[in-house]
Nucleic acid binder design. Sequence first.
DNA 1: CAAAGTAGTCAAGTAGCTTGTCTTTCGATA
DNA 2: TATCGAAAGACAAGCTACTTGACTACTTTG
Lengths: 152, 152
Amino acid sequence: MASGDIPGLMGLAFRSVMDTVHEKLAEQGFGDVRPAHGYVFQLLSNTHGSTAVEIAAHLGITKQGATQLLAELEDRGYVRRGPHPTDRRARIVTLTERGWACVAAVVAEWRAIEEGWAALVGRENLDAMHAGLAAIVGEASKKGPIMLRPLW
Amino acid sequence: MASGDIPGLMGLAFRSVMDTVHEKLAEQGFGDVRPAHGYVFQLLSNTHGSTAVEIAAHLGITKQGATQLLAELEDRGYVRRGPHPTDRRARIVTLTERGWACVAAVVAEWRAIEEGWAALVGRENLDAMHAGLAAIVGEASKKGPIMLRPLW
DNA sequence: CAAAGTAGTCAAGTAGCTTGTCTTTCGATA
DNA sequence: TATCGAAAGACAAGCTACTTGACTACTTTG
């Protein structure tokens, strides 16, 4: 029978990871990034440039909310807003060098945390978790994209 | 080498679970519960009664924030605030029948989701995930309690 | 038993979204 | 190619879930 506590454990584990990451980022001079920013960075690092509307859709917030968020990120030097090559209404948002550095810091910390986990539970178990999680996320994504907005 | 994408997958999986749970709760007449409420319910269902200050500490918010949250939950019929047996300053907060019903609905849905996962990845793999997550959360908890506030 | 600390409340302020409205540009249709 | 609905973004105001600040009632400590 399912005990039903895996979701809770996942929440705690994720929360713990993110607390650690946030702490490490602060140490490296990225103390001014908020949770929502991470989701923007994630999209931008995959697409290498998006519009405000695309970002809004990715985060599950309004385009106005996304615009404000981007203005904040531009102020802080993480993103740049340039002209869109084909659509003069739109502005294309890309990561600056500082933005990429922040993404790299997060990825490095995630890897480091995973190494710690491998030492804790064993490589084999960790591989099993990776495979299981990938399958679960893959299945869940079939019913529409999973919104990454920082709630719950 | 660690690929570094397990934390991201955990975040997505947890997010997906919580979206589903929220949807199911709404169907069962619990549409007025917000993320933060869940963390209150979790504490109250384990302790069978806490004060506002304890709840604030558990969620990592101020006591005033917790008080507001509890007033809201009392209005909506999920919790009851009674006198504290030994401290006349304090009020002891407990779940109402409606509160317990909501907790039961969440637990039932988590179990159902886990059953689905067992079918998807296999019981053995799921058990491995459970063990791994428990170890990870246990280790992380040694460095202080993991704050459950709904950020990240 | 006085002084310091704690539980809770009331009130005001704030951050991060929202909704509403507008301008500019795009793309489809006639 | 003229026009007209739709879409990208900006500006402004509103809202919600917190925060900080100031206070009262009660408890604990020395």
